[in-house]
Design a protein around this nucleic acid. Structure first.
Lengths: 396, 396
DNA sequence: CGACTTCTTCCACTCACAGGACAAAGACGG
DNA sequence: CCGTCTTTGTCCTGTGAGTGGAAGAAGTCG
């Protein structure tokens, strides 16, 4: 199949495409109700979109009491590739133009192996998805990396946990390999966009999305759009001081949030507790696997292990304290907690909530939901697909 | 003089008005270079603006090598009132349409006397300014209050330091009294707008403006616009925890930034130091005045008093620590420090800078200026004038 | 089967705007 | 002082976007 290179010619077409993406197939008549255009104008723009092949006619809609309207949908052959590169694993998914996931692969991998090795992996995963017949090619790809990105160019800048990626032309390289447009962003921002598109943050204009994985980051959505900051490092809350004169952190300071709570810190704490014999549950798991990760802590907590619960609670307290500050500062309408450690679930959430509700002022917390992300590991890839579709569904 | 009630009829007119406000009088020809409009279109819109009286012709411009162009300027009779209600004083200023201050009054006053008393004061100050012949009436007024505001309605909500103002219809009441449109905002947001319009933040799209007065607040500018948060309490950083288990704060928590550093806290610390005889300078000032304020500390520091300098440094450290967190989170392009205690000047600034540059990551601080505000006590009133002019110079 | 709805297309009309032609006003060299 | 060139302002017409009415197409419902 030939890939679509068409782009909407004007804002009306862009608007229609986004309506069809977010609301699914729709009849011409209903589209007319949604956009404020005359029937004639609407017909012209829809016809042009049909010509470009971006949308297709799709039978007749149910009658609303008179003549039946024709259905319109985004071309069902359109395919986006969503890539979410985490610190320790890679997610690749294929979506249709409505950003529904058609196929999804996950593979453990260390980003520190460098861009070349990771790209090889990503491309082979993409090829595997293609081989299942889900796609014959991609109309666009979004990719998230665990570090700051100079957004317009799609290039990571000074990423602490992924040395070797600094300045690597991710966007250009991937675009070359895949032969389609590519957009690059921080993985946390993509998670926020994912939850905004298809998760708990639908219809919220200002919210924070805290991702607790190997590190800790925060997606900031202001007025419906992601705030990236002047150098692309906005949301980098892992190195906010949570404990004065606390533990040393890889960044050179002491007491950073990330040093006290994150997937990595939690694993370290669990190892320590096990070695000191403070938890039979953790000792057992250490002996079984030879090492411990955040997943083990989650399992131990689920089994009622007091030490594991304490670790999670303490981490939640630290995280909650930092979030409380951000809530006072930013006054969001929603806080989403996500990332690899959501398995820690309600113990973590409860600790965070307690801190935030205690420390922030009532006006800011009064009507502030603090919830777990809804999409789990798919948030990132959906956000990635959303990123590239936002780009492609905008006038050239 | 009859007041202008006209508003721009379309975005082109709004654009022209803002250009004339921010860039001063200009020739028709130069305006043509600045806005991307055909000469015919420009002429039509300028003519319409002349008809409404919002702008006036103003002689001939210098020749650019051919026929001389006609100058256009905002009606020099337009008058805006800028009101900045602080915790302990009130500023009222009259500006022309270019937001230049024509007259400015400042009066000590406690907001806790309530809205009725404060309004009486404000109106009498406005009348005094009118009496000097600066204005015969006002075309609009902006007003800042030291607490959260439900912006669209112009009503304070749950303001901690100004009980009695909760829900008071500031906008409506003042509009009634003055007979002109009024907009209300948080005083810190107005300070940010002031520095953005005429101060250090010109041409910066994303910045933070930290105001240290009786309390501490922070104006947040994102993409050129003020971020107010979902309940209007964004920027309320005074109650972020700066010292775990620190001093008790009026809000019920412990260790809030405001409890450790602010005009009020500084005065208290100085009193304590004087009573313990730790500083001859402060003791002298206490005996002379019967009490001590932040101004005394500033004076003592300027005289080289070690205790005063220590107090300022310690406060700066706490403030800097909080700001460091915000910088990591928000990644601004500039941080402005302002408010009543700018008299503490470079001692304070140095302490803040040290903390921020030490604690935040290089990518965020690499090219981040941290500077004192340029406008001092006029930032608020200029911001207030800017607020209402933005409103009036937008299509109705 | 006929009256009423709803949807789509067609067409004439309005309106915003661009851009060229031309006149007005000044600069500048001779 | 005069002619030529440049810049500015005005007038006018062409074009393309967009609206809204009319009429036809397709259905529903009693």
């Amino acid at each position: 199949m030939r890939r679509m290179t068409a782009r909407p010619a004007n804002t009306h077409q862009a608007r229609l495409l986004k309506l069809l993406r977010d609301g699914g197939p729709n009849s011409r008549a209903q589209l007319g109700d949604l956009v404020d255009l005359s029937r004639s104008k609407l017909a012209v723009e829809v016809d042009r979109l049909l010509e470009t092949g971006l949308v297709v006619a799709d039978g007749l809609a149910a009658s609303r009491g008179g003549r039946r309207s024709h259905n319109i949908r985004l071309n069902p052959g359109l395919r986006f590739l969503g890539v979410d590169i985490g610190a320790t694993s890679v997610d690749v998914a294929v979506t249709n133009a409505e950003l529904e996931i058609l196929g999804h692969l996950n593979q453990p991998m260390d980003v520190r192996e460098g861009p070349v090795a990771v790209f090889e992996q990503v491309l082979s995963m993409a090829a595997k998805l293609k081989a299942t017949g889900l796609a014959e090619g991609f109309d666009g790809a979004g990719i998230g990396v665990p570090g700051p990105v100079r957004f317009p160019e799609g290039v990571p800048v000074a990423p602490p946990i992924m040395p070797g990626w600094d300045g690597f032309p991710v966007r250009e390289a991937l675009s070359q390999e895949l032969g389609c447009p590519v957009m690059v962003d921080n993985d946390v921002n993509l998670m926020a966009m994912g939850e905004q598109h298809a998760g708990v943050a639908r219809s919220v204009g200002d919210f924070l999305c805290v991702k607790i994985g190997t590190g800790i980051g925060c997606g900031i959505v202001v007025g419906g759009g992601v705030h990236r900051g002047v150098t692309g490092s906005a949301g980098d809350i892992g190195h906010i001081q949570a404990v004065p004169d606390g533990r040393p952190c890889a960044c050179g300071n002491r007491g950073c949030l990330e040093a006290h709570f994150s997937g990595a810190a939690l694993a370290r704490d669990a190892m320590e507790a096990a070695q000191q014999g403070r938890s039979a549950e953790l000792v057992g798991r250490l002996e079984a696997n030879g090492t411990l990760t955040a997943v083990d802590v989650a399992a131990a907590a689920a089994a009622g292990d007091a030490t594991a619960l304490d670790l999670i609670r303490e981490g939640g307290n630290h995280t909650g304290q930092v979030i409380a500050g951000l809530v006072s500062f930013f006054n969001p309408g929603l806080v989403v907690i996500g990332g690899g450690v959501t398995g820690l679930g309600h113990t973590l959430l409860a600790a965070i909530r307690t801190q935030v509700y205690r420390q922030s002022l009532p006006l800011a917390t009064g009507n502030l939901p603090i919830v777990l992300g809804e999409l789990g590991p798919t948030a990132g890839v959906i956000g990635a697909a959303r990123l590239i579709s936002d780009h492609l569904f905008s006038p050239a």
